[in-house]
Amino acid sequence: MTTAAAHDRRVAEILSLITDTEDDRPLLVRLCAQGLTALPVAGVALALMTDEGPSGVVLAATDDRARKLEELQFSLGEGPCVEASRNGRAVLEPDLGSSGPTRWPAFGAAVLEAGVRAIFAFPLRVGAIRVGILDLYRDVPGWLSAEDLAEALAFADAATVVVLYLQADSGAGLAPAALTEPIDNRAQVHQATGMITIQLDVEMAEALLRLRAHAYATSRTVSEVAVDVVDRRIRFDDSDTGASGDP
């Protein structure tokens, strides 16, 4: 294994696991349930984030305790989830018993009371785009193994794709295929996204969605379209396909 392909493959796998199913629960509920199966954790929750910071909206949770702890963090204004969304970095706390109460005075006590001993919070982000937080709760202290951490990061990336997709207004014309494909991390994709924010005067998340939508509408890959944008062969506008030019 020599490329980031393994990670992307796992993200795609998780996405197809939650979409190829008769299960009629919401997508993010299924994603949390899959996470609970795949990871050595006692609870999984997803919280929404807006540009202004944590929103207090719990998108999905595997159980009532996880949901309550999410909500508690927002009302107290402290906790791993709040910290992860503020810094845009994962917060890994393997031993709440020894460091929880000092790190988060109010939340630390409540979370121990609830029987949780370790928390891992991962931001759902694509550079400047921050859509939410994935929280993992454990009843026993201890680090996630390297493998489990890689798995958790794959779940976070899969959740990012789903939350982005769900936030798209239908006007962006995003094909369901957008739901099963990991975000392409080639530099040009993100450069093009930055350019499109100016061309359309939209936020970064919207620009990424428009780029993906245009690729599906014209049956090309996202990175092919991105290269055309970066090389200034096409520009995004409000036409039907979302862009014009000579690719």
């Binding site: 550079g127 450069q191 996204t193 930055g194 350019m195 924010t197």
Partner: peptide, 10 residues
């Protein structure tokens, strides 16, 4: 960084 490069380039 790549997103910012795109914004600045445009």
């Amino acid at each position: 960084l790549e997103q910012a490069k795109g914004v600045l380039a445009e």
